[in-house]
Design a protein around this nucleic acid. Sequence first.
DNA 1: TTACCTGCAAACTGTTTGCCGCTGT
DNA 2: ACAGCGGCAAACAGTTTGCAGGTAA
Lengths: 140, 140
Amino acid sequence: MSLADDIRAKGRRMTVQRRLVLDALERARHHTTAEEIARRIRARYPQIDPSTVYRNLEVLEELGYVTHTHLDDRVTRWFRADAERHGHLVCRRCGAEQEIDFQVLAPLARRLREEHGFRADLAHSAVVGICRQCAAVSSG
Amino acid sequence: MSLADDIRAKGRRMTVQRRLVLDALERARHHTTAEEIARRIRARYPQIDPSTVYRNLEVLEELGYVTHTHLDDRVTRWFRADAERHGHLVCRRCGAEQEIDFQVLAPLARRLREEHGFRADLAHSAVVGICRQCAAVSSG
DNA sequence: TTACCTGCAAACTGTTTGCCGCTGT
DNA sequence: ACAGCGGCAAACAGTTTGCAGGTAA
């Protein structure tokens, strides 16, 4: 069963716009913003409205294909739900993003679950801090 | 040396508005938003403009008295820099916020520092997931 | 045929900025 | 006296919504 069939089975349609949004998420290596997706799509297909991108991200999330999170700014970041789970380190100084193996986060997830009954989704939120380079600069 | 003196020593002034913002942060138990602070101040002193609150939060952060973070939405959260360090669990389903002891997060912070040279600020970002209650509901 | 979906324009929220007169030091 | 500061109004970025016509199934 293709993704398109899957979408149809859920009472939705596979439109050109929806496909383009999915493809854009596919191509984006890391978390992207709706505006970035819209920008890339519109570079080639300028007829497509940004609001369509927002609406598609919303239904794709509802259907379980994508999810979103917030890094250290006010912008919503989107990515495929089936992406390999990994954590994010974001430097609050230089803004650099770095991926880390999910295994590093697993012990915390386990503890939160055992001690607080909380199903943490550590792959979704970024860990904010100061990266090695910036730390080196500020400490001399 | 009082906080006012400290501020003056840094070439800034202690104005009524600045004091009100500091007091509002003092009274707020948890992280608050600039709008919430403005709302509370304006309930009693309606002359004070929201933009003044934003500007004050900015300089107070620059001076090191307050910091901000982002939970699971697009809104900036502010709190006193000297507040006791603690983590936040935010439920993406019901929105409930829960504080956790910083000790729970410490091992991860240590590992990120040792393995990635990254100075994580785990007290700043919230951990997103599903809380015990919501998990109970969805699993039957 | 009929929901679902789209483009367009306009609204909306949280935040920032320019201007200019005021005020703490 | 003179930088820092505040109030006001307007701009701004990111996002959402209402509408009316278009399109997948």
